[in-house]
Nucleic acid binder design. Structure first.
Lengths: 225, 225
DNA sequence: CAAATATGATAGTAATACTATTATATTTGC
DNA sequence: GCAAATATAATAGTATTACTATCATATTTG
C-alpha cells in the first residue's frame, strides 16, 4: 500500500481504485496502456487481458472509459497542485511564486515513488495527448455539475490568485492561467508532432524552452497596461 | 453552384465534395449535424438518412468520419485566412495588421453567402468543440505528412510573419500564434461551459472580451523584453 | 450512342461498449 | 470460527459502429 492517496471527486469512480489491489492494477496498467495506445484504441477488454481480470470487474470500478480518463487526468492536475503547494510554502513574493508554478508545469515529469502505482511520466504523456478530450464533449455541463473537473479548476484558481497578488487590477487572470495550462500541454505536442507551429524544440531544451515561453506569455500579459 | 470554392489538400477527400450536388449536401448537412450532435454521436449512416443517400455513397466522398472532420475544420481555417487577406490589404503598419487578425479570429461568425453550402456559424461551433480532436490522435504524424493540416499551418505562418514584422527578434512567434488561435476557441468553450476558467463572459460582450484578451496576450508577449 | 462514372440497394463483418446472470472466492464483523 | 457481506470470475448476450463488398441501375460525357 502507498503512503499517500488523493481524495478525488467520488463521481469519478464507482469504487475507489486506490483502496484495493485490483483497483491499483487498473490505474497502473491503464496509464501504461493509454499512454501507448491512446484513448481511442484502449478498451476495458484489452486492459482486463493485461491485468488478468474480467472486463466486468473493470466496470465495477469505472462506469466507462471516459470516466477513467477523467479520473487519470484529474489525478495528474491534483498531483501538480500538490507539487506547487510544496514548492511555494515559505515564498512570499508573488512573482517568485508564479515562476515556481510555471517551472513545475513545464518541467520534465519523472516517476514519483510517493505514489507507487502511478507512473507520472506516462501520465504526463496522456495529459499532453488527451487532456482536451476530457471536457470537449456534449456531456460537459452534466459532468461539470457532478464536479468531475474539480482538480483542474482548483489548480487554476490557485494560480489565478497568485496572478492577482502580483497585479490585483489585471482583467484576465483566469483566462490567462487556463491558457497557460492548456499551452503547456499543447506546445509539447506541437514540438513533437507539428514543429512548425511552435518555437519550442523537441529534445534536450524542450522543458527550458517551454518555461521561457510560458514566462514570456504570463509576465507579458500581466505587466502590460 | 457557388461562385467561390477553396482548394483544400486532396488527401482530405476521395472525391471533391465541392464539385457535385451530393458532395455539397454532404458538406452542408454534416456541418449542421456535427454542430448539433458532436463528432462522437455523428455517423455516416445518420447523415445518409438526412440527405437521402446511402451510407456507401458518403464513403465515396470521404474515407472516414475523421477525414470529414479534418476537411471541415481545414475549410474553416482556410476561410479565416481568406478573410484576413481581404482585411489587411492596404494596411502597412504590422501592429494594425495583427490587430485585424485578432479581430477576425475573435469576432462573431455569420453566414457568408459567398459560400452557399457552408454555414459558417455552425462550422465555427464545430471548430470550438472539435478542433483539438483533429490532431490529437495517434495518426498525427502520418496525416501531417499527407498535408492534412496545411490550412491551419498556413494561417499560423501568415500571422507569425506579421508578428516578426512587429519585432524581428521575438523568440516565440509561432508558439505565440498557435497559442492565440487555440485560445480563441478554447476560451469561448470555457465561457460557455466552464466559466470559472475564464474572464470572458458568455453573451453580448463575448467577442469583445475575447478580442481584448487576445490583444493583451499578443502584445504583452511581443513587447516584453 | 457507347463508355465511363455516379449512385442505389443490399448484405455482411469485426470490434466496441456495454449489461446481465450465476457461481465462487475472499474478507469482515461478531 | 462462522455467517454474512462483498469482490471477482466466468460466461453470455446486445445494439451500434465503422466500415467493406458486390451488383444493378441511372446519368453524364466524349
Amino acid at each position: 500500500m502507498t503512503t499517500l492517496t488523493f481524495k478525488l471527486n467520488r463521481h469519478l469512480y464507482i469504487r475507489d481504485p486506490q483502496h484495493s489491489d485490483l483497483g491499483q492494477r487498473i490505474i497502473s496498467e491503464s496509464i501504461t496502456m493509454i499512454a501507448a495506445l491512446g484513448v481511442e484504441k484502449f478498451t476495458f477488454k484489452k486492459l482486463a487481458g493485461k491485468i488478468d481480470c474480467t472486463e466486468a470487474s473493470v466496470y465495477r470500478y469505472f462506469e466507462n472509459k471516459h470516466r477513467l480518463l477523467v479520473y487519470l487526468v484529474s489525478w495528474y492536475w491534483h498531483w501538480i497542485e500538490y507539487c506547487i503547494d510544496k514548492a511555494i510554502t515559505n515564498i512570499n513574493e508573488p512573482e517568485r511564486k508564479l515562476k515556481e508554478c510555471l517551472r513545475i508545469i513545464s518541467e520534465e515529469k519523472k516517476y514519483d515513488p510517493t505514489f507507487e502505482f502511478v507512473n507520472e511520466e506516462a501520465l504526463h504523456r496522456i495529459v499532453i495527448a488527451e487532456f482536451n478530450k476530457m471536457y470537449l464533449t456534449k456531456s460537459v455541463d452534466d459532468e461539470n455539475e457532478e464536479g468531475l473537473f474539480g482538480s483542474f479548476k482548483s489548480l487554476c484558481k490557485k494560480i489565478t490568485e497568485i496572478v492577482l497578488e502580483i497585479k490585483p487590477t489585471y482583467t484576465f487572470p483566469s483566462a490567462l492561467v487556463s491558457s497557460l495550462l492548456v499551452a503547456s500541454t499543447q506546445q509539447i505536442f506541437f514540438a513533437e508532432h507539428l514543429p512548425s507551429l511552435t518555437n519550442i524544440k523537441s529534445g534536450k531544451s524542450l522543458h527550458d524552452d517551454l518555461y521561457l515561453f510560458l514566462e514570456n506569455l504570463a509576465f507579458g500579459a500581466i505587466q502590460k497596461n
